[in-house]
Design a protein around this nucleic acid. Structure first.
Lengths: 266, 266
DNA sequence: CGCCGACTTGACACCAATCAAGATAAGTGG
DNA sequence: CCACTTATCTTGATTGGTGTCAAGTCGGCG
């Protein structure tokens, strides 16, 4: 659950990464932060020793090409991963053959936590990417001794859980246009994809992935883009770069009439 | 994420409660199990001392009436809860006023984990219920000393996370009929609601809650029931008891043609 | 230059929401 | 216990959003 968004109303209640504590809300949930001085920490909670231990079992893996499989659903889950650079998609295949993209993982996001020893989902690179790889068993062993590290992991999973809950609400209530608007807003908040000066958004996600993430078809996604453009909220400039003409317009769109009338029970 | 289901294909990949370890898949994720001999344990992983500590900070709270609020989204999150008896719904209100039911929590399920000190969702009783209540801060303090207990909590959250992922796929791919069929199948697996001898299912959930959980309107839910009845898969006997005529028929329904055609990328 | 994949647009069909009304069940007071 | 009220559930007719199928455009690359 990578994409973040800045609206602060109820529907849009965005889980804060450090959800379990009550600290400052600006830190991104992560086990590793290459840029900071404490590269293996979330919110500077880990001791030097703990960070060292994490570093020892981490291995940086490079995926130079888009569309490379990192792991597949049902496979033996030996590793957990943390995105270093690039974007990774987490997907699940229905037996109908219909794919669903559960999340786009951004730098700092953790993924691949096993379910009964197996991966529950598949994951592939969306663009060239580098990821840290940890032996899950080793990590578990360390966590058994280091409660603070385990709390970091718990925090991270709780964060992803809330993002999933938010996505459930979006998928079942918002129209396709609203979902797309929300997606763009979310993406704008991720460092490195939105150029504020020119108000241009870089969308390295193709229409397939986008549609499967937002629960619609590629055709509908294209139409949704067209409508946003007609209404003067965005301007397409190639299918992967978009100029944001009215961020407020996008925000208002998702507050408008939902797909279903409001429930007024009791 | 309470409801469980027994189909074992990919789409229906049901997370096992003890997902993080690799042990036997029969135990239900829980912190407390009143019925067992180890009432504060998941999968008998906790020591006597740890169980005692949990018991000390737990308080059993009774909610004799349906529709009682346990906590509200945005409120100060002092407690976490574990269902003892009855059903509790976890919901979120969009600013449009549209409610979404995120999950029905069954006996043994844990809920109310705070997000930045506040509750992210609301929760109300669906029927008369009893819940265990824990001071979150106390629980955190104990967990800091007892990694095994914290691992139990992590396991539980990871389990709910996977249920949320499954629900995302269902909401965005399945038709209303398929979603209802799946819901019934899930409910049948919960101990105490399905009478195998008469093949009768007790559904203590009203159409409002059901529709808001499955992402449809009450009218559509009623029509979906009608269609399942027309096709000879169920028989309605009052709106809250249902006779299952063909469990296999229900299972096949959700494998049929989905709402969208399959994605065949690459 | 021409092929090919990704993306877009159009015409049509269908599923599900809406609005409205009726039926059943559940309380409530006499 | 029965009439009355009310909530819950169901059914019908209509509309609109979105998937489907098909064709067309754009851009990249050999």
């Amino acid at each position: 659950m990578a994409v973040t968004c800045g609206v602060e109303n109820k529907m849009d209640f965005i889980p804060s990464p450090e959800s379990l504590s009550g600290s400052a809300p600006e830190i991104r949930a992560r086990l590793i932060d290459k840029t900071g001085e404490s590269p293996f920490d979330i919110g500077n909670l880990l001791s030097q020793k703990e960070q060292e231990e994490l570093r020892r079992i981490a291995k940086l893996v490079d995926y130079p090409r888009a569309g490379t499989t990192i792991f597949s659903a049902g496979g033996e889950a030996d590793f957990v991963y943390v995105v270093d650079t690039g974007i990774v998609r987490i997907s699940r295949l229905a037996e109908s053959g219909q794919r669903h993209v559960l999340a786009f993982m951004m730098p700092g996001d953790l993924f691949g936590i096993p379910d009964g020893g197996l991966y529950a989902n598949s994951s592939e690179t969306v663009c060239p990417a580098r990821v840290y790889r940890f032996y899950w068993q080793k990590l578990r062993r360390i966590m058994a001794k280091e409660p603070q590290l385990q709390l970091n992991l718990l925090t991270k999973v709780a964060y992803d859980f809330r993002r999933a809950q938010r996505q459930m609400v979006i998928l079942s209530q918002q129209t396709t246009y609203q979902r797309l608007a929300l997606f763009l807003l979310d993406f704008m908040r991720i460092p490195g994809f939105f150029d504020e000066r020119h108000s241009r958004l870089n969308l390295p996600v193709n229409r397939f992935d986008l549609a499967d993430y937002l629960g619609m078809t590629r055709e509908t996604a294209a139409r949704a883009f067209a409508r946003l453009e007609d209404e003067g909220l965005i301007r397409r400039d190639g299918s992967h770069t978009i100029e944001i003409l009215s961020m407020n317009g996008l925000k208002q769109l998702h507050r408008g009439r939902p797909r279903k009338r409001a429930t007024a029970q009791r």
